[in-house]
């Protein structure tokens, strides 16, 4: 008993304090979302009455195209998650398994390019896409396909790097066996590598999905129209500068937007964490 007091009690005490720190904002969001007033002001930390008015408002108010935002976010993040891995995996495979001149330089370029933060070349992306708009208005500045193209470019560096790390850990003997049997590099890729790496590809595309879902600044620059915004841009614009007025619906909206991501994350945490140590820092 004494040992328990000495060893475990303080651990529980510290853990409870940190739990409070972690849970406080989350509890508050639920409190605000379920409060009937929808204001930022907290009158009591214990709910006196529960109302779904804020959720109701989210789906019915014409001023909040919440479903459009949610749909845009899922479509954009989903497309990027699939395409960036399809394209990135091929490059990662080549970097990991093929021998060719300039491999080292290629990897160094990839590493160097990643160090140039995307936001810094934002003005250049803006000017370039403005020019693209002048001859191809459908994929230029201010369009969803344009945003997708820019995201795809940005996802390349990180994904190729991450995927290469995973590919390196797949035993090379399998490829060699295939090669001995007369398979070409392209056949090895499709018949051996892709089926073997499928779970890894799924994890990377999941990380890619989360990253794109969280992207804010490019989306804000590109998607001006209220209905074409992503959830991040929409909710931010919704409360920017006026926390007090729209807080309730915002809280409700962020709960709904977070639930799928949190659920995916918690259920696949084992795989995602192995990706973390391989060098990604989630934004």
């Amino acid at each position: 008993m004494k040992r328990w007091l000495k060893e475990d009690l303080w651990r529980h005490a510290v853990a409870l304090v940190i739990s409070f720190f972690v849970l406080f904002p989350i509890y508050l969001v639920f409190l605000s979302a379920l409060s009937p007033t929808g204001s930022l002001q907290v009158t009591s930390f214990i709910p006196k009455s529960i109302s779904f008015r804020n959720f109701h408002l989210l789906f019915t108010s014409p001023a909040i195209p919440y479903l459009d935002w949610m749909k845009n976010s899922i479509v954009i993040a989903g497309t990027i998650a699939v395409l960036s891995v399809v394209i990135g995996a091929a490059s990662a495979f080549a970097f990991s398994r093929l021998r060719f001149k300039g491999k080292k330089q290629g990897l160094q370029l990839l590493l160097l390019v990643q160090m140039f933060p995307a936001i810094l070349s934002l003005s250049a992306v803006y000017v370039i896409m403005e020019r693209v708009y002048s001859f191809a208005p459908r994929i230029g500045l201010g369009t969803e396909p344009g945003l997708l193209l820019v995201y795809l470019g940005g996802a390349m560096g990180v994904n190729i790097w991450l995927l290469k790390g995973f590919v390196d850990s797949i035993p090379i003997e399998l490829d060699e066996a295939a090669k001995v049997d007369g398979a070409s590099a392209v056949q090895t890729y499709w018949l051996i590598f892709v089926p073997l790496a499928a779970p890894v590809l799924a994890v990377v595309s999941l990380l890619s999905f989360i990253g794109t879902f969280n992207e804010f600044i490019l989306a804000r620059l590109f998607l001006v129209d209220q209905h074409s915004r992503t959830i991040a841009v929409g909710l931010q614009g919704f409360i920017s500068g006026q926390y007090a007025t729209n807080w309730g619906p915002f809280a409700a909206g962020s709960i709904i937007a977070s639930i799928p991501l949190v659920a995916i994350f918690l259920s696949l945490q084992r795989y995602i964490i192995s990706g973390l140590t391989a060098g990604s820092v989630k934004g």
Binding site: S19, P25, I239, S254, S258, L261, G283
Partner: peptide, 30 residues
């Protein structure tokens, strides 16, 4: 405890930042 502690990491960070922004409000913040 473990599930609680990784919650901030699992939530979309944009939402979390905006929520904290509201909580730090001088007049009405929690």
């Amino acid at each position: 405890y473990r599930s609680i502690f990784i919650l901030p990491y699992a939530m979309p960070s944009i939402m979390s930042i905006l929520i904290w922004g509201g909580m730090f409000d001088t007049e009405f913040g929690a």
